[in-house]
């Protein structure tokens, strides 16, 4: 679980996860496209995300595709969120989402 928190404690890595969340299953080239980060830096960040199991890669034909893996984040949620709190928390985050214009 330490690895997950360390991997998430970086804005560049979170933005890579955001990109995969918006469009899942991207190649390295697609992920680098339009990013203000060197290809080397992206590769390094992806390796850290992969070690934390937050990103998984699969071979699809000749391409290597990157997917966001929400399972470790879900496990963190399961650890501290009780079943009966879920509805209230969902309502609260929906309220926050609707009231705030920025999603940072």
């Amino acid at each position: 679980m330490d690895e997950v928190f360390k991997a998430l404690a970086d804005a560049s890595r979170r933005s890579l996860l955001d990109r995969l969340h918006a469009d899942n299953g991207q190649t390295l080239n697609e992920l680098c496209d339009g990013l203000d980060m060197s290809r080397q830096a992206v590769t390094k960040h992806l390796a850290i995300l992969e070690a934390a199991n937050l990103v998984v890669t699969i071979r699809h034909g000749r391409e290597k595709l990157h997917y966001i893996n929400p399972v470790p984040i879900h496990e963190i949620g399961e650890r501290w969120i009780r079943k009966f709190e879920r509805g209230r928390l969902a309502a609260l985050s929906e309220l926050k989402r609707q009231l705030e214009t920025r999603d940072e």
């Binding site: 299953g25 199991n53 998984v56 699969i58 699809h60 595709l65 997917y67 893996n69 929400p70 399972v71």
Partner: peptide, 11 residues
């Protein structure tokens, strides 16, 4: 087609 999602867990 390419998978829509891939989930991994270690048990």
């Amino acid at each position: 087609s390419k998978p829509e999602f891939v989930y991994v867990t270690f048990i």
